[in-house]
Nucleic acid binder design. Structure first.
Length: 469
RNA sequence: GGUGGGUUGGCGGAGAGGUUACGCACCGGAUUGCAAAUCCGUGAAGACCGGUUCGAUUCCGGUACCCACCUCCA
């Protein structure tokens, strides 16, 4: 069995992965703030972790991995949306409107990630379900001298944690020197960050020892991960943009609340997504959600393939050219494995690549090798380690009965024309196929077909109408 | 100012101190009524300047350029 190696942000090195408890490998991924549809960048860590979990289950056993991904459902953007709906005259209370919004968004999120073939985590805690644990953790931090309450706020005393900045490689003094830090009158130090903040009547709030209020963002993940995975677990991940301040603050909170525990052993951070070489942003007009792509007819499996074709620690560029290439490759492979029973186990080359810091691009290269050798069973079993060529994601590549019957009938017509040496008619049918996105292969045993990029059922129907009448 | 990432053949994109990455595209051949698909094959690379080494695209140092983060952001 290949030794799994992972690049640990904490040490900035690629290290052998040694689980704390091989019978229960524990991971936590920072999930979305559920205020709107997931954009394409949100999908990257989800897919990276999906493959990681699949690899860990392969190595340690399906029942020996616990994967947690949270929903942040306490957030000012969610509040703003609820207030907007209230302003439009909704009869629901603000709390109900927030629940309405977050339930709706979570439903979308599930649908979108399902469409990419990402397995649901074992636990998907919502922050609002863990307020009591957050309050308890904050109380501990105050007792330990790491936090202080002031004017309804509770703040983390950054100077009380000597290792602050270690995860992100920053020094507290540099951060203050360079920076735009919020200087609030109730802060002892400009770097101190909020654990709890007061809510006025227009905002959701919970009763606490410090009055009615709501938690700061960072404490949510500390409380949820501790409750579900314990105070010492294996892997914690997220986008590189979360490294600071979110993860740095999580480390500070959790390590001060549980000084001898250790928190996460390995930190994994994926690089950001770009679109045609630029950061995805609303102002550049290149911002889109996963749903936008799905609605344009881009299959989830194609999105997944493109995402996994770049190593997770490199910036990933979403381009039209990659989308096309991915689709062509998947169509080819789907044709190869049609009706084939997967091999008993994935190819060693694929496991080796994934074990080497989750080298999904290398794994895909190994899949190309298998395809080139004509090892369909091996290709199928191995691709499924990456969540590709699964039955769940197969729909887009299939023609359906009606189209299939039309194609068969047209192929008979073409064959007849060729036999009669009416090549003009035969070639017209072939050109029609090409225009409709159907690829015809003349083999020794007769004509075979497959759908190609840009398959168009309507054009196929029109072609059949012309030729077969 | 601080921090991180990137720079590989026409394009995408990995690994490895010395041996073909891989895919797509291109070119040549086989095959075909002509094609397509398929098969076989040929080309083509590692920003720049130094250093270490018998040998570096791979290690070390520096330079340049690009991207991102340091503020809610996966």
């Amino acid at each position: 069995m290949a030794q799994i190696r992972l690049t640990n942000t904490k040490t900035r090195k690629k290290e052998d992965f040694r689980p704390i408890d091989p019978s229960n490998v524990r991971l936590y991924l920072c999930g979305p703030t559920v205020y709107d549809r997931a954009h394409l960048g949100n999908a990257r860590p989800v897919l990276v972790f999906d493959v990681l979990v699949s690899l860990l289950r392969h190595v340690y056993g399906a029942d020996h991995v616990t994967y947690v991904r949270n929903f942040t459902d306490v957030d000012d953007k969610i509040n703003a949306e609820a207030q907007r709906r209230k302003g439009l005259g909704s009869p629901l209370s603000l709390e109900e409107l927030i629940t309405e919004r977050t339930d709706e968004t979570i439903g979308w999120y599930h649908a979108d990630m399902d469409a990419l073939g990402a397995a649901r985590p074992d636990h998907e805690p919502r922050a609002t379900g863990y307020i009591a644990q957050m309050i308890a953790m904050i109380e501990t931090l105050i007792e330990n001298g790491n936090a202080y309450a002031k004017e309804g706020h509770v703040l983390f005393r950054v100077r009380s944690y000597p290792d602050y900045g270690k995860l992100s490689g920053r020094s507290v003094d540099d951060m203050i020197a360079g920076a735009r830090v919020e200087v609030a009158p109730f802060k002892e130090d400009p770097m101190d960050f909020v654990l709890w903040k007061p809510s006025d009547a227009d905002l959701p709030g919970w009763d606490s020892p410090w009055g009615r209020g709501r938690p700061g963002w960072h404490i949510e993940c500390s409380a949820m991960s501790e409750d579900l995975l314990g105070d010492h677990f294996d892997i914690h991940g997220g986008g590189i943009d979360l490294q600071f301040p979110h993860h740095e603050n999580e480390v500070a909170q959790s390590c001060c609340a549980n000084p001898h525990a250790g928190f996460a052993n390995v930190w994994l951070h994926n690089e950001m997504l770009q679109v045609e070489g630029k950061k995805m942003s609303k102002s550049l007009g290149n911002f889109f959600t996963v749903r936008d792509l799905l609605e344009k007819g881009i299959p989830g499996e194609v999105i997944r393939f493109v995402m996994l074709s770049t190593h997770y620690r490199k910036p990933m560029d979403w381009t039209e050219a990659k989308r096309e290439e991915a689709e062509a490759t998947l169509r080819k492979w789907r044709g190869l494995v049609a009706g084939v029973t997967p091999a008993a186990s994935p190819a060693p080359a694929v496991i080796d690549a994934l074990s080497d810091d989750l080298n999904t691009a290398g794994a895909i290269a190994a899949l190309h090798d298998l395809a080139g050798q004509g090892d369909a069973a091996g290709l199928l079993a191995s691709a499924r380690m990456l969540g590709l060529l699964t039955d769940e994601l197969a729909d887009w590549a299939e023609a359906g009965d009606e189209a299939g019957a039309l194609i068969e009938a047209l192929l008979v017509a073409r064959s007849d024309a060729r036999m009669a040496r009416d090549f003009a008619r035969a070639d017209a049918i072939r050109d029609g196929f090409a225009a409709a996105g159907v690829e015809v292969k003349d083999t020794a045993g007769g004509a075979e077909w497959a759908l190609a990029t840009g398959f168009d059922a309507a054009r196929l129907k029109a072609l059949a109408g012309e030729v077969l009448s």
